[in-house]
Design a protein around this nucleic acid. Structure first.
Lengths: 265, 265
DNA sequence: CGCACAGTTGACTAACATCAACGGGTGTGG
DNA sequence: CCACACCCGTTGATGTTAGTCAACTGTGCG
């Protein structure tokens, strides 16, 4: 059971798919059509999502395209490194991490995906998934078949524009993280990570000062290019300084300006 | 004068535009139409470039779109952080770096662009350039107006596909660098950087074992998140170990397997 | 209830940054 | 064309940061 639901990310209730305990599990075999009426038109994430501000008829077309949903249990894989790429995935509820390999069997967390984030954009260029996509909690995604999407975008300039923006946005985010990892101290990285998460949650309509980091300490460390111990120590230091309150994965930002000044903005 | 032309990157001979010495120079005021006949159809970079394998008539359309070239003198800016985004740029000859700010007036090199690379993809999502694009030598780019490009892609599925792949490829590269910066030692970063450059030059048809790093030491250091001194020391170490031969910006990879094993592949 | 693992803390170490100094190449101005 | 200055590149000595090793506690799950 996940520790807390302080974030209330509408985790789907009925888990239909069995998962296996542990890190090495098979990807779920097949996609499953959605029985419930869950079109894009009545999705609370719509404005933040790919269809964005499409008009109603265009929205219907897109909704038909993204009709198939898929549930993924905690720790299960949505896709695996090496799998053939066929679809993009939009996080509908829950959260995911992307995991790559760095060096000899060194796993490294390369991305964190929250609701409305698009996964597998990096696989477009090669046709093969370059990273594992692992659910951090019981989650659900909208499956967007890529071939059909690119056909649809030809008819819908706005959608094409959105897709290009999404890809570009990913580049911006990656490059921002690069800047961070390259030339920031460990403390700055941690602070920047928390501020970044806060901003993303705010965009989703949450408060942004209280949230749950869905990553475990070692995942967080991997993501930031640090060790578990230093992450731990730095969180404690930030807490002692009164900048945050942290208990396991629950975070509360108590002094955002202090965090900002740490990062240098 | 640039130190060497060991790479023979067909730098255009006649410099029409005056540049100003130093780091802070004005962006070139206007684009200039190409007088010479320099269509995509007879460009030696074509297969590696955006149009890729378009058929002849489609190629003509694209060539018309990208007809305008622009020369940029060494150290001059193709665009500046904050400039409105209107066009993508494909490097035709020469090379560029993208420079961002990290913290308080800390400049950081975030990208290195060689011939056939597309610049400013990150600006699509915001409509504003997020980084300075600075020529590392006298260079030339093809100007690709973004609005017109997105209109053209609607008629040309292949081109749309190429564009999406290019964007996705950028994500892959960024993420690869992230993996590097995050969890590699300084020596590994340097080795990985050299191997990466080698691969890119090979794709352009060069040998890949002898090339000129167009970045100065401090730029290289910035790009890799290190200091000038450590980059220096590590290059020396690699040279002592017989893995490379380096004289200023001229590099020769003498033992690629050794470099690979350092990085862990 | 107990095991396994996540999280935390402390002592020590290695890696990299910082500070300082110097040769040499490059670009500029005389 | 030459001289000077500046910056690039390099090297050594020292300092600080974060990684490593080890031990312990807390938590969740079987």
């Amino acid at each position: 059971m996940e520790t807390s639901t302080s974030l209330a990310t509408c985790v789907s209730d009925s888990g239909l798919v069995q998962d296996v305990f542990g890190w090495r599990v098979e990807p779920l075999p097949v996609t499953e059509p959605a029985d419930r009426e869950s079109s894009c038109s009545n999705c609370h994430l719509r404005t933040a999502c790919l269809p964005g501000s499409l008009n109603t008829e265009a929205l219907a077309d897109f909704a038909a395209l993204a009709r198939v949903k898929r549930k993924v249990k905690r720790r299960a894989a949505l896709y695996r490194r090496g799998d053939a790429f066929h679809s993009l995935y939009v996080v509908r509820s829950g959260s995911f991490k992307s995991v790559g390999v760095a060096g000899i069997e060194q796993q490294k967390v390369t991305g964190l995906y929250l609701p409305a984030d698009i996964m597998a954009l990096d696989a477009i260029c090669t046709g093969v998934h370059g990273y594992d996509g692992i659910a951090l909690e019981d989650s659900e995604v909208c499956v967007v078949p890529y071939e059909r999407l690119t056909q649809l975008t030809l008819r819908m300039p706005e959608l094409q524009s959105h897709l290009l923006q999404a890809l570009s946005g990913d580049i911006v985010r990656d490059r921002g993280l690069m800047l961070r990892l390259g030339s920031m101290t460990a403390e700055q990285r941690v602070a920047a990570f928390l501020l970044g998460l806060s901003a993303r949650y705010q965009k989703l309509g949450y408060a942004g000062t209280r949230f749950s980091v869905r990553l475990a300490r070692h995942e967080m460390a991997s993501y930031l290019g640090l060790t578990v111990e230093t992450v731990c120590r730095l969180l404690r230091r930030l807490q002692q300084d009164g900048a945050i309150e942290s208990h396991l994965r629950d975070m509360e930002l108590k002094d955002v300006p202090a965090l900002r000044s740490l990062v240098g903005y």
